[in-house]
C-alpha cells in the first residue's frame, strides 16, 4: 500500500515541518472520491484537512484568501469534472473565481502553487490519493507560508 504513481511520500517525524493544507471539497464528486479512496485503503499523507460544501460553486474567493490569511500553507479546491457538476455548472463558476485567486496571489507575491483546483470524480479514488500526495509534496517543497513567517 503506497501512494499511486511516481509520487514520493514526504518524510515524517518529530522535528520535520509539516504543512497545513485545507481542502475545500464538493459533496458529490471529490468528497465521494475521497471516500472511495478510503474504501479502497489507498494510502496518502495526512496533511490535508477537509471542509465539505455541496458544490465548489459555493466557494467564495475570500474563503481561499481567508485560509491563507489565517496561515494556511496550501489550499486545495476540488470539484467535479467539467460537464459533470451535480448542479450543472457550479464548477465552471468556481474555476473562474479560482483563476482570479491565482492571479491575485501572483500579484501579491504569494506563490500560486500553494493553491490548486483539481477535478476528481466520485469514481476516482486513486486519483484523489495522487492529487493529495502531489499537493502535499508541492507545498512541502515550497515550505512554510510567507504570511505565517511575517506574523512571527
Amino acid at each position: 500500500m503506497s501512494a499511486p504513481g511516481n509520487f514520493k511520500i514526504p518524510e515524517r517525524g518529530p522535528g520535520i515541518w509539516q504543512p497545513k493544507i485545507i481542502g475545500l471539497l464538493c459533496n458529490w464528486c471529490s468528497y465521494a472520491g475521497a471516500d472511495l479512496a478510503g474504501g479502497g485503503r489507498i494510502q496518502y499523507p495526512p496533511d490535508v484537512r477537509v471542509v465539505r460544501v455541496m458544490c465548489t460553486g459555493r466557494l467564495d474567493a475570500l474563503f481561499v484568501l481567508k485560509a491563507f490569511a489565517d496561515g494556511a500553507d496550501g489550499v486545495l479546491v476540488s470539484g467535479c469534472h467539467f460537464g459533470d457538476c451535480h448542479y450543472l455548472e457550479g464548477n465552471y463558476k468556481a474555476a473562474k473565481r479560482m483563476f482570479m485567486v491565482k492571479r491575485l496571489m501572483k500579484s501579491i507575491g504569494l506563490d500560486d502553487r500553494r493553491f490548486r483546483m483539481t477535478f476528481v470524480s466520485a469514481s476516482e479514488g486513486a486519483k484523489w490519493a495522487a492529487v493529495i500526495t502531489d499537493v502535499v509534496n508541492t507545498v512541502t517543497e515550497l515550505g512554510p507560508s510567507p504570511i505565517t513567517e511575517f506574523k512571527k
Binding site: V53, M54, C55, G57, R58, L59, D60, H86, Y87, E89, G90, K93, A94, R97
Partner: peptide
C-alpha cells in the same frame, strides 16, 4: 437546489 453558486459570488 442549494448549490450555493449565488452565495459564493
Amino acid at each position: 437546489k442549494g448549490c450555493g453558486t449565488c452565495g459564493g459570488f
